[in-house]
Amino acid sequence: MSDIKSDPHRPALHRREDHAPGDEPLEDSGHWIYNANLGLGFSIVLTAAAFFLAGSHIIYGPSIPVALIVLAVAQMGVHLVFFLHITTGPDNTNNVLALAFGVLVVFLIGAGSIWIMDHLNQNMMPMDQMMQMQR
């Protein structure tokens, strides 16, 4: 079944290539380093921009949180693509679907909590009135 000639890491050049089921190819390291460099470059730029914007007055003050969140989302995307290797390739279909569901749950938890708690907060009776009623 697995003699030395069917070693997947040394593909036979002239004969028919033969492997046991489930064997995996030895991958090249080049594109991993290339991706890592790209990812690091993008991340440094985005992080530096975020730290710079947070302490500056270059853009309109109230819009700074929005800009920071946009930068954060962009950087998460960079990490997903270049570090976690989430792609649109067919070997990644399930990962992408799971990610989409995860993002949905995270959004519901975050936005839902903020929305509901803010709503409750606004409808709550001021504390002094509540004390009056309890007397």
Binding site: P8, P11, D18, H19, P21, D23
Partner: peptide, 11 residues
């Protein structure tokens, strides 16, 4: 061809 050969080619 066996799956892994295709995978090598794909990479």
């Amino acid at each position: 061809l066996p799956a892994s050969v295709g995978a090598i080619r794909r990479v």
